[in-house]
Design a binder for these strands. Structure first.
Lengths: 335, 335
DNA sequence: TTGAAAGCGCTAACAC
DNA sequence: GTGTTAGCGCTTTCAA
């Protein structure tokens, strides 16, 4: 069933059918009804490809993320997809993994598929070496690119970020204030947001003359999901003689590993060791005691990201970078 | 830049350009190289919409799920997206929520967008009332529909399921064997797979004359993520005088709530209470002690689902339903 | 308010 | 091995 069939059965031209299909005003109520009746009768729906060819858009947005099964990224994708759909856009999902090479080819693929815009979910798309970020600016030459929790200053790329620096700064300040002096920062990512978090922690420590290079910052390299391995890492640290009575983790998974470590060492939480996570995910309640964590207002970020994108697509001038603040949600792992 | 531009610059016809683009054999090496050079020089990529219009496909598969941020569904989507992409297909993601109405409209929307196939991820797409499943059969009249962890007998719909019944039966049998007599089944879904699981539990209990109607089966109605509320539900049960020394949960989240409950009651795990979860997710390691759980081989299921879909799309005869068995992974919450 | 007709950029059947 | 041409099903001028 094509627009020709409908036009024939309704006794009008295809132009008229097209007009009612697209809600053009210049159609008499009478012919409009006539056409609509035929359309409904035959359950006709326009061919999306032909439409795409004519309009040069199929109203789809490409969503890229490293790993859609990551708790945090999954949540972001969920919010984004919902809000896009509510605005008439489809989402093409693209899980790229963490390799730059794959990110580049995925990005190019999406552009080839003629998406209307691209959303990069997660800070891992931004690299320390500026040259490595060229692929994003290149893509932005074709379609608007939105960054969630990352920022890049380039034409046609828009960033929405949580103020990780301040959140972490305040978490650390708070823990210091509660009496802990020798806490460590436990992290596994040097991404854009990863660096901000670490810097926030470090600043708070330095301000209080508590920062010890090579000790205060503890990097874990390994699977993002392997909690036992993370806990083991902490144990080795402690075995090496590095002592600490507080752990601020770069995400809730790492924090859970910290809790696991503390339990294995029979340390009382929070009396003997304080722990703070990041993301305020469901994991906070998977923990005993419940995990204190930083809420970075993911839904708000996503909401804002989508409105910005829609604005850009409508040709409006939109803010290049928006920053939201996070909030420390206190639960059982801190005093 | 179009195929016409390229053909002109290369001094050949558009048909020849199209041929090298599509790897047709009937092109001489010389002209092929000539065309390829021009293509590379101008970084030309064919217009996907025009291609779609001609071929009537854009090589995309619709993925529907109720909630892509659900731990289990997210993992499934991840596997599926990866495997589709590896085979040259894009994925349009569609989070429908749990309302039938929305599922129907999403499904129709995907068909309108002319996807090549549709994958329904999760058992919640199948309803008890057969009439409610008509929307799936209707969709299958247009494109192949794949069900993950659900089954429906209709033309052009294919099911890949884990043998939830047997897995649950064996988990229950195992717990009975370990000496627990009065365990309860803690669940929150009456979906296709939810019913299978429950039936497996019930069968094992009945076989051992341990099943007590109105007691052995405990339904929790509430947020799928609210662990404290789930734990509270168990506490109320216990307060009501219903005693149990074992909990088999329909998923790991519920099982974690069971652990939380046990800790609040100062019950020793597994000595005084045994707990088994389902899905063998990362949550098993978020738990202290680590959670015994049933692994339903999600990646295998997804792998098989994709190969079946690809087979169907290639016009091959494929199995309508495939069943894989799960496996009980014993950890610290069982004896 | 309506219709005729020219694209949109590609594929593929057919002819040479 | 290569070119010509007729679609694919829509949108959108331009005339009427």
């Amino acid at each position: 069933m094509t627009i020709y069939d409908i036009s024939e059965k309704a006794g009008v031209s295809i132009a008229t059918v097209s007009r009612v299909l697209n809600g053009s005003s210049n159609v008499s109520e009478k012919t409009k009804k006539k056409v609509l009746d035929v359309i409904n009768k035959y359950e006709y729906t326009p061919n999306a490809f032909a439409r795409g060819l004519g309009l040069n858009t199929m109203k789809t947005i490409g969503i890229m993320c490293a790993d859609s099964s990551d708790l945090y990224l999954a949540k972001a994708i969920y919010y984004i997809e919902q809000k896009l759909r509510a605005n008439g856009y489809d989402s093409i999902l693209c899980c790229t993994g963490y390799q730059l090479e794959n990110k580049i080819s995925s990005l190019n693929l999406l552009i080839t598929k003629k998406v209307d815009g691209i959303i990069l979910v997660g800070s891992n798309f931004i690299y320390e070496n500026d040259a490595d970020n060229k692929y994003i600016a290149d893509a932005a030459a074709q379609v608007p690119v939105m960054l969630l929790n990352a920022a890049l200053d380039a034409p046609n790329v828009y960033s929405v970020v949580s103020d990780d620096y301040t959140s972490m700064y305040e978490a650390a300040a708070q823990m210091i204030h509660s009496g802990v002096r020798d806490m460590i920062y436990f992290y596994n990512s040097n991404s854009y947001s990863g660096k901000k978090k670490r810097a926030g922690f470090q600043a708070a420590m330095e301000e209080n003359k508590l920062f010890v290079p090579g000790r205060s910052l503890q990097y874990y390299q390994g699977s993002h999901e392997d909690i036992p391995a993370m806990a083991e890492h902490l144990k080795e640290l402690s075995d090496k003689g590095i002592s600490f009575h507080g752990i601020i983790a770069a995400d809730d998974t790492l924090a859970l590993a910290a809790v696991k470590y503390a339990k294995a060492k029979h340390l009382k939480i929070p009396e003997e060791i304080s722990i703070i996570g990041y993301n305020n995910s469901m994991l906070t309640e998977c923990c005993d005691p419940p995990l204190t964590s930083i809420d970075n207002k993911l839904e708000t970020l996503c909401q804002h990201l989508i409105s910005t994108l829609l604005g850009v697509l409508s040709g409006n001038e939109m803010p290049k970078k928006t920053i939201f603040s996070g909030e420390l949600v206190k639960r059982g792992t801190t005093r």
